[in-house]
């Protein structure tokens, strides 16, 4: 218990160091040590997915990962997605389409859906519902989460289209 470990990791692009107990969960490191309380904990058995974050681009449940396992890695939490000046398309989607009610599961659900959109930029409703398998939302009945993800996919596609247009016309170099 007393033997502590030093770890260094990048969280939302910022290098963070911590001296921690080896048994400390990544979720607790983020919330209690680094004060990034946007990542929530809803269960003990990695079912609910409220704690979902990205580690080196992979979607993981931070309540089931030891903080020491994230040593040297890049972690992205909800706080790293976007702010009100520039929301991430997934945040925009959830806001526009009423994808959240109490908002407790939302950070994990959004991160989990970013994982989906990276692999499948244009998912069908069925594919979105399947990809939501790792999270539980008790408020929304999921329907507007599906709409939110579809909207985000569209925003990302439009954003990419804009980028491609500016590239081809030589602007913005």
């Amino acid at each position: 218990m007393t033997c502590k470990k030093n770890i260094s990791l990048s969280v939302n692009g910022v290098t963070r160091q911590a001296e921690i107990e080896p048994r400390l969960l990544l979720a607790h490191l983020l919330r209690d040590e680094l004060n990034l309380t946007g990542t929530h904990i809803g269960c003990d058995t990695s079912q609910c997915g409220a704690c979902t974050v990205m580690v080196d681009g992979d979607v993981v449940k931070s309540c089931t990962v030891l903080a020491v396992q994230a040593d040297g890695k890049e972690v992205t939490t909800v706080e790293g997605l976007g702010d009100m000046e520039q929301l991430h398309p997934i945040q925009q989607g959830f806001w526009e389409k009423h994808g959240l009610q109490c908002g407790f599961c939302t950070p994990g659900v959004m991160i989990s859906m970013i994982g989906l959109l990276k692999e499948n930029p244009n998912p069908t409703e069925e594919e979105i519902r399947d990809a939501l398998e790792g999270v539980i939302c008790r408020c929304t009945g999921y329907q507007f989460i599906v709409s939110a993800v579809q909207h985000a996919a569209q925003l990302i596609a439009e954003g990419n289209a804009v980028k491609e247009t500016t590239m081809s016309t030589g602007e913005g170099r």
Partner: peptide, 22 residues
């Protein structure tokens, strides 16, 4: 209408009971 509640919740700036640290 889009919700006034959402900006804090979608950016990780909510304040739930477990987020309180004294």
């Amino acid at each position: 209408q889009k919700r006034k509640e959402d900006p804090k919740l979608i950016t990780g700036n909510g304040n739930f009971t477990d987020d309180i640290k004294l």
